[in-house]
Amino acid sequence: MDIYTNEGKKKLIKENTPRSTLGKNLVKSFLIGGAISGGGEALRILLLKIGVAEKQAPVYVSLTIVSIAAVLTLLGVFDSIARHAGAGTLVPISGFSNAVTSQAIDAKSEGLVLGVGAKIFSICGPVILFGLAAGVIYGAIYYIAISFGW
């Protein structure tokens, strides 16, 4: 056994570190993530039925999921669900909502401007930055395509 080189240590660590139970985690995240997405779709259909415009319905759905996730975060329930759901709550917009709300709650004790204001997007910052950047690139491509009449 070699415990004096990094390779030896890494080998020993790898052999003794348990892996996540992938199968169980996948099933749980599929079911919970699926339930959120399925619920969202049901709500969209319902909104269309009661006469909401087709372009607006998805926005209302997103808002509803964001609000519910924010309230669950405030109640301290969200992290208990996410512990099981993993990507199931992270990937839908609920994960974004939780990242913002939880950071806001935490930063509250440090003041409104330098606490909440400065830190609120520290976790979801990458989503905002790269989401916007992707939007700009997509917009540019779209603009060029339109102007060439494609």
């Binding site: 570190t17 996540s20 992290d79 935490d106």
Partner: peptide
């Protein structure tokens, strides 16, 4: 948690180690 990891109410899955 606040100092080293994520906000206290942030929902994430922790690995078994």
């Amino acid at each position: 948690e606040r100092q080293f990891r994520a906000p206290t109410e942030y929902g994430a899955q922790r690995p078994p180690a």
